[in-house]
């Protein structure tokens, strides 16, 4: 097929966009989401209610915000396991600022800047010293949360100003929360960044072949550094939201979030080996994870059991296309 003489003019595309859309990962995710939605509506009469659907979104918006940046990072071939620890450290710093009498704007600035700083620290270790990110961020994960533990011990910070509560608890319009709005806006921004800019194109190139990308004039280190900063920034924003929603800071805040964020990204069709993925997939995966946890919650299924469903979903959704291809191949040969 590859060496057959072709006309000198080579067409831009062969697949019609519709054709490729139907057989895409995103289509599979939409089908899964619709199925879960339908099952939920049948299983619980409370599900199809504007306010409960609104509550549903609180289950995933904070993690999903981080997942947007994490998707880019994983596409570039790196990973950040320290995001939950960044949340803890940023929250602790905000708590300290509250004790010192800081107002809401200062708190938000501190949360975001601490996140950015932690991301930059990870980025420097990975890009400047050329260390594997999975190990670096296991280290910084202990370090960042460790600092939170040193500061707080078994104590907690409380007493956040009432105006601070808006970010995690407020509504922009009717049932539309600030968190959801922020997530949707961020999703559009990240979609544009990844799929419509030369920056995004370079991220894909790095993920598929970092050496060839470097030879092609892509500043690999700089782009990876920016991605670590973005991931830290999103963790800082998530920290503001969570702290605002809970109204308190403990050093164990957001424990285990990193794995849920990565699950969301992988479920969204981003290759854990780098080089492939889409923001739409990640957004869909976020909604699916929210639907599963919320639906099961309405049925009084404990959180830990829900995690079984998330784990199974992750493995099945990844395994399904592989098994499907194998079955189809065996039938044809």
């Amino acid at each position: 097929m590859t060496d057959t003489p072709a006309p000198r003019h080579i067409p831009d595309r062969l697949d019609t966009p519709l054709n490729s859309a139907i057989f895409s990962w995103e289509a599979l995710l939409v089908a899964v989401a619709v199925a879960i939605f339908a099952v939920n509506s049948f299983a619980s009469p409370y599900f199809l209610d504007a306010w409960s659907l609104s509550d549903l979104t609180f289950n995933f918006t904070e993690k999903a915000l981080i997942a947007l940046a994490m998707a880019l990072l994983i596409i570039s071939g790196e990973i950040d396991l320290s995001v939950a620890a960044i949340i803890a450290l940023a929250s602790t710093m905000m708590g300290m600022a509250v004790q010192a009498g800081a107002g809401t704007p200062v708190l938000v600035a501190i949360g975001i800047l601490v996140g950015l700083g932690c991301g930059a620290f990870n980025g420097l270790l990975v890009t400047r010293l050329g260390l594997p990110s999975i190990v670096v961020t296991i280290g910084t994960m202990s370090l960042f949360r460790g600092i939170a533990f040193i500061v707080l011990g078994d104590q907690a910070y409380k007493g956040y100003p009432s105006s601070f509560a808006f970010f995690g608890q407020g509504y922009v319009w009717w049932v539309v929360s600030f968190e959801l709005t922020l997530f949707l806006v961020a999703a559009v921004i990240y979609w544009f960044l990844l799929h419509r800019t030369s920056f995004g194109r370079r991220v894909f190139a790095i993920g598929n072949n970092p050496v060839a990308a470097q030879f092609s004039g892509v500043r690999v280190g700089r782009i990876k550094f920016i991605l670590f900063c973005l991931t830290g920034l999103m963790a800082g924003i998530a920290s503001v939201l969570i702290t605002s929603r809970l109204g308190s800071t403990r050093p164990s805040i957001a424990q285990g979030y990193e794995l849920e964020v990565i699950t969301m990204v992988v479920l969204g069709g981003v290759s854990i080996l780098g080089g492939a993925g889409s923001i739409l997939g990640v957004v869909l995966a976020a909604f699916i994870m929210g639907l599963v946890t919320f639906g099961l919650g309405l049925l009084n299924v404990p959180g830990i059991v829900m995690s079984i469903f998330i784990g199974l979903l992750l493995i099945i959704v990844i395994a399904l296309p592989i098994v499907w291809r194998r079955v189809r191949r065996e039938r044809f040969t």
Binding site: L125, V135, V136, I138, G139, T140, M141, S142, L143, F144, R145, G146, I147, F149, I150, L152, G153, P251
Partner: peptide
């Protein structure tokens, strides 16, 4: 003992 986590983190790095 709350220092332990930060110390092992630094040791890893």
């Amino acid at each position: 003992p709350f220092w332990q986590m930060a110390i092992s983190g630094s040791a890893i790095i």
